[in-house]
C-alpha cells in the first residue's frame, strides 16, 4: 500500500483505498477460475442479487475482447455503462496479476462515469489453476471451479484453490451425471484451505448464488467499517 501522500494528492497505486478526490473508492472483488467453471454466470447472478441494495459495476477480462461483457449485456444484469471489458492480449492472468494497469484504469473510469460505487466485480478470463489476482487490484478474490472439471481439482490445489478468499465449487447439480464425489471435493478443499471458506453452489438450485452474495455483503461490511 502506498498511503504516503507527500508527493501528490492523486494516488498512483491502485491498492489505495481512496480516489483522486479523496472519497473512498469501491470495494473490489476478483473472480477467477478455469474456462467454463461458471464465473460469468456467477457474476450475472451476483449482479441480480445485489443490484437493488448496492451500486455496482463489472470489469471483464476477455481473451477475445468482449465475449463475457457481451453475455452480461445480453442478460441485462446491469445497465451497459456499468460493464467494461479490458483487452488482455491473449493473457488474462497477466492483466489481473502481473500488469494490472489496464484493470485499474477500467475500475477508475467506471467510478468516474457512473458515480460512486459500492462494489466492482472484476472477472478474469477463463484461465488455469495458477491464476490469481494482484492485491493491488482487488480487495478479495473468489476462485470458481466446477464439479465437471474433475473432482480431483481441490486436491491438486494450486494458488487459486488454496489461497482465494472464497472457493466456489459450482454446478453441484451436475455431480451425479459426471461422477464427481461432492463430499470428497469438500473434504479436499477443507484440507487444502484450512479456515478459508468454501461454498458448494448450483445456480439452478433454490439457493442459487445466495451464499456467495452473503459472503460478499459480509466482506464489504467489514471493509467499509
Amino acid at each position: 500500500m502506498h498511503l504516503d501522500h507527500s508527493h501528490d494528492h492523486t494516488p498512483a497505486v491502485g491498492a489505495d483505498a481512496h480516489r483522486a478526490d479523496g472519497t473512498r473508492r469501491a470495494f473490489r472483488v476478483g473472480l477467477g477460475g478455469p474456462v467454463g467453471s461458471g464465473k460469468t454466470a456467477t457474476v450475472a447472478a451476483l449482479c441480480r442479487a445485489l443490484r437493488e441494495e448496492l451500486s455496482l459495476a463489472v470489469v471483464t477480462n476477455d481473451i477475445y475482447t468482449r465475449e463475457d461483457a457481451e453475455f452480461l449485456l445480453r442478460e441485462a444484469v446491469l445497465p451497459p455503462e456499468r460493464i467494461t471489458a479490458v483487452e488482455t492480449g491473449a493473457c488474462p492472468h497477466t492483466a489481473i496479476r502481473d500488469d494490472i494497469s489496464a484493470n485499474l484504469e477500467a475500475v477508475e473510469d467506471l467510478e468516474d462515469t457512473v458515480g460512486p460505487l459500492d462494489l466492482v466485480l472484476v472477472e478474469s478470463g477463463g484461465d488455469n489453476l495458477t491464476a490469481t489476482f494482484s492485491k493491488g487490484l482487488v480487495d478479495a478474490q473468489i476462485f470458481v471451479i466446477d464439479v465437471a472439471g474433475g473432482d480431483d481439482i481441490p486436491r491438486k490445489g494450486g494458488p487459486g484453490v488454496t489461497t482465494a478468499d472464497l472457493l466456489v465449487v459450482n454446478k453441484t447439480d451436475l455431480a451425479p451425471y459426471v461422477g464427481s464425489d461432492l463430499a470428497r471435493m469438500a473434504a479436499d478443499a477443507k484440507a487444502a484451505r484450512g479456515e478459508l471458506p468454501v461454498v458448494m453452489q448450483s445456480l439452478r438450485g433454490e439457493t442459487g448464488v445466495a451464499d456467495v452474495a452473503a459472503w460478499v455483503r459480509a466482506r464489504l461490511a467489514a471493509w467499509t467499517a
Binding site: 479490458v86 483487452e87 488482455t88 492480449g89 493473457c91 497477466t94 492483466a95 502481473d98 500488469d99 494490472i100 494497469s101 489496464a102
Partner: peptide, 11 residues
C-alpha cells in the same frame, strides 16, 4: 518487458 505499463495487451 515486464514493466507493468500495459504493453502486453498491444501488438
Amino acid at each position: 518487458g515486464r514493466f507493468p505499463a500495459g504493453g502486453h495487451a498491444h501488438s
